[in-house]
């Protein structure tokens, strides 16, 4: 699962801390998502997309065949 959170953050001139506070998670979680270390839940993914006023597909891209790092 790839994402463009970093791009959207840059477009909105936001730090990881700003985004984390806005959606109610820790900065480490934003960092882990950006680095691909953690795949967020649908709920959190929608929150991030809604925050940037875009569709979820614009922020997150599913790549078949790529091993997703997910806690389950």
């Amino acid at each position: 699962m790839k994402n463009k959170i970093k791009v959207f953050r840059a477009m909105h001139d936001m730090t990881q801390e700003d985004l984390a506070q806005a959606i109610g998670v820790t900065r480490q979680t934003i960092l882990a998502i950006e680095k691909g270390k953690y795949v967020p839940s649908l709920d959190l993914a929608f929150k991030i997309a809604r925050y940037f006023n875009v569709n979820i597909e614009e922020v997150f891209t599913y790549e078949p065949g790529v091993q997703a790092v997910h806690i389950d």
């Binding site: 109610g24 998670v25 820790t26 979680t29 967020p40 806690i71």
Partner: peptide, 13 residues
Amino acid sequence: LIEDERSRKITEK
């Protein structure tokens, strides 16, 4: 003390 889904998952795991 912010406990989000990632930290909860780590604790659960």
